[in-house]
């Protein structure tokens, strides 16, 4: 697993709720084995915004290279496609700050060394306002070790984070190796299942039908 300790840089505000993975990584732009994530990321929204001469923050020069994305609730809902995480990662995003995430999207962030920070709604509104005011001028810090976001003017926003997930991110622990420490438990479960519910252990598909 990729590590995450801390990241320092600009923060992009994209303050919409319910951003689904179709918007982050539109199917027709990622349905190839080697997608161009520079074009694919928010591809349709960015293209129509540029056409209307109102580019999204992702295409504004002051946010170039920003590693922190500040967005609305239920981020990453919809399709489970992990390309919607890879698209942000390939464009340099290392941390996403939102009031809530879709469960699958959040898990995929963790697997890719992207820090999903959840702030309660008042703190999030506060943090987002600072980010909008800052407009790409200052440096924000997202620090997992101290579980704190720092704004350019020195305000601190603490956030909660599961201890096990924090360890895994800080040390880049291999998820499979970590789980296989419990292979004895897995084997015991399989043995018990063979006895109690053996039909769950066998797949019987009649392929002639």
């Amino acid at each position: 697993m990729k590590t995450f300790t801390f990241v320092r840089g600009k923060a992009i505000p994209f303050l919409l709720d319910d951003i689904d993975t179709d918007q982050i990584a539109p199917a027709n732009l990622v349905r190839t084995l080697t997608p161009d994530y520079k074009i694919a990321m928010f591809g349709h929204r960015r293209a129509s915004a540029i056409a209307a001469d109102k580019p999204l923050p992702f295409d504004m020069p002051q946010y170039a290279g920003a590693p922190i994305l500040v967005t609305g609730k239920n981020f990453g809902c919809g399709s489970a496609r992990e390309v919607a995480v890879w698209a942000l990662a390939e464009n340099g995003i290392r941390c996403i700050v939102a009031p809530s995430f879709s469960a699958v999207y959040r898990e995929s962030c963790l697997k890719n060394g992207i820090l999903p920070v959840v702030l309660d709604e008042p703190s999030h509104a506060d943090f987002a306002a600072i980010c909008v005011r800052d407009d790409g001028r200052g440096e924000f810090v997202a620090d997992l070790a101290s579980r704190t976001l720092h704004t350019p003017e020195g305000r601190e926003f603490p956030f909660a984070f599961d201890a096990g997930e924090r360890e895994a991110l800080l040390h880049g622990l291999d998820d499979v190796a970590s789980t296989l420490r419990y292979v004895g438990d897995i084997e015991r479960w399989e043995t018990r299942c063979e006895i109690e519910t053996p039909w769950l252990r066998r797949v019987s598909i009649d392929t002639s039908r």
Binding site: A80, E82, V85, V104, Y105, E107, S108, K111, N112, D175, V176, T179, L180, I186, E190
Partner: peptide, 16 residues
């Protein structure tokens, strides 16, 4: 349950 692709690697390797 739905999951991401990387999670699926873990599931295939551990069945959990």
């Amino acid at each position: 349950f739905g999951c991401g692709s990387t999670e699926m690697e873990h599931v295939l390797a551990t069945q959990c």
